[in-house]
Design a protein around this nucleic acid. Sequence first.
RNA 1: GCCUCGGUAGCUCAGUUGGAUAGAGCAACAGCCUUCUAAGCUGUGGGUCAUGGGUUCGAAUCCCGUCCGGGGUACCA
Length: 597
Amino acid sequence: MLIEQTLKENIVKAVSELYSVEIQLETVLIQATRKDVEGDLTVVVFPFLRYSRKSPEQTAVDLGHFLEKNVEDISSYTVVRGFLNLIIAQKYWVKQLLEANAAAQYGCVAGSEESPLIMIEYSSPNTNKPLHLGHIRNNLLGYSLAEIMKANGNRVVKTNIVNDRGIHICKSMYAWQKWGEGKTPESTGIKGDHLVGEFYVLFDQHYKEEIRDLMNGGLAKEEAEQQAPSIVAARELLLKWEARDPETIALWSRMNQWVYEGFNVTYKELGVNFDKIYYESETYLAGKEEVMRGLEAGIFYQKEDGSVWADLAGEGLDQKILLRNDGTSVYMTQDIGTAKLRFNDFAIDKMIYVVGNEQNYHFQVLSILLDKLGFEWGRGLHHFSYGMVELPNGKMKSREGTVVDADDLIAEMVEVARRTSVELGKLEGYSEKEAGETYKIIAMGALKYFILKVDPRKNMLFNPEESIDFNGNTGSFIQYTYARIRSVLRKAEERGISAVLTADQPLMLTEKEQGLVKSVTLFPATVKEAGEAYSPAFIANYVYGLVKEYNQFYHDHSILAETDETVRSFRLILSETVSKIIKTGMSLLGIDVPERM
RNA sequence: GCCUCGGUAGCUCAGUUGGAUAGAGCAACAGCCUUCUAAGCUGUGGGUCAUGGGUUCGAAUCCCGUCCGGGGUACCA
C-alpha cells in the first residue's frame, strides 16, 4: 500500500486526537518535497491552523511528532516555514521498487467483462483527399486515449466514421470522369488517396477558372459560383448517387476503394487501428428517420419551405437546421443516425468523440438533440476537443495547398532518422532490415511524441524544418535512454551478474537514487490521472521527467562496475524498472521503443 | 455583436486538486567520451506568468474587468 494513504488516515486521526476535530480524508494534502529541502513527502499544515489555533510551526511539530510515533515507515521529520517534511525510511523505498519491478503491468489496471465499455471515435476522414498533419494529431490522440482508457481497466471500442458521401466526393468523381483518362492507382503507381486528391484539386482549379470567366461575362460572384458547369455537374452526380444510379454508385465505390487502400497504408504507418468502422453512406438514412420521428413528435418544427429545424433557444442556443428543404440531410443529421446505430450495436457506457475544437458547438448541439429525442445517453456524450496544428506561415488550408501531407511527412522523418543514425555511427552490426525497422521506430517516435507532448486543447505550432528533432525533450531521447538501459541489462547478463535484493537488506541510497524511486512510485497515479483528464500529454511529460532524472543518475553512478553486490543489485533493478515504465508509458502513447539505437 | 478556448524565457512547450525561491528543450557561450551507448551530462546568461483589480495564511493556477489571438455563430462537412 502506498504510504500517502496511510499518512492521510493518520493525519485525520492526529487532528482528531490533538485538536478534537473530525476532518475529511480528502482535505489532507500531501505532496513530494521540494528537491532543495530535506525530506521525502510534505504535509501542508495551513488548513489545520483553524483547528489547532497554534502557529504553523507548532502545528507542524504536533503532527510530525504524532506521525513519527504512529507510522512505521516515517523515520523523522523537519519543519521548514510551516511545511512539515517527512523523512521516510529507505526500506520503504526499496520495498516500493521491488513491488514495481515485480508487477506484471505496473501502473495499469486489468479490465474485466464488467468493466465500463467506452467507445472512442477518432480519425473520421473525408474520402476525397489524403490525410494531413491535422489528421495525424487526431489519430495519435485517439489511439493514445484508447490505450490510456484500457490501462485504467476499461473496455474500449475504437471506431471510425468515414465521410464517404457528399458533394466533396462527387467533385473528385466528376474531375476523374472529365479529365481522368482512365487513370488508376495501378496504372500510375500513385497511392489511391493521393490520386483521388489530385482530382479534387483539379476540380477546384477548373471551378475557379469557370467562376472567373463567368464573372468576366458579367455575372455576380454568387451567381457564378452557383452556375459554373463543374459544380452543376458535381451536384448532378450527387443527385444520381442519392437516386442509386448504378453507374454513379459503381464509380463512387471504385474511387472510395482506392482511397481506403491508401488510408490503410497511412494508418499502418501511424500504428493506429479500429475495431469498428462506420460509413456515413450507411448511417445518414437512420439520422433522417430520427429527425422525421422528432418532427412528428413535435420536438422539431418545419418551415414553410419544407426544411426541418430544432429550436434550441431554451438551451441558450440558436435555431439549427436538420433537413434541407429538398429533404437532404446535413452533417448534424448524419451524426444523429451514427450515434443511434452505435448505441444499438454496443452496450456503450461512455462515448468519446475525438474531433477538433472547431466543432465544439456542433457537439454541444448534438448532445442536446439526442437528449430531446429521448436517448438517455445523449447528455453523456463527451467531445474530446483538440486544437489545430499551425504552420509557421499560418494555418493549414487544403485548398490553398498549405498542408503538410501525412505520407510525405512520415517518409521525411524516416529519412532524417536514417541519416542521423548513420552519422552517429549507430546500429553497426544490424542487418539492413533490422536497421530499417529501427529508423522507422525512431522516426515515428519523434513525430508522435512531438505531437502528443502538447496539451491537446491548445493549438500547436509545427515547423517542418525545426520540429524534426532528435535531441532534448523528444521521443528519441526517451527511446535512447531505453536502448541504453537494455544494453546495460544485456551486459549484466553476459557477465553473469544477477540482481539479488530484498527489502530488508540495509542500503544507503544516494539522493538521486531515492529521487528516482520516488518518481517510479508516481507512475500509477500518473496513468490514472491521465485517464480521468484524457490527456496523453500528462503521460508524455511524466515519462520525459523520469528519463531525464534517470540520465542524471546514470552519469553519476556506475551500475555494473559497482563492487558492493547489494548496491549493484539495487541499481540494476532500478534501471530495469525504469525501462519497464518507459516501455509501458510509451506504449500508452502508441510509441515503440527499440532495443538498440 | 454573441458564445467559446487560449496568452508562461528570443523560439517550442511543461507546471498535479491553489502551496515553499516558476521548470525543461531549442538557440548562444564554456566544460565533459580509454569505463555501462556523448541522440547524453555539467555550468552561465535569459521571466512584470498579457494586463488591472478581487478572493486568502498563500494565486501562473480560482472570480470579475480590459487588451491581444484562435475557433464557432441557422441549410459546408
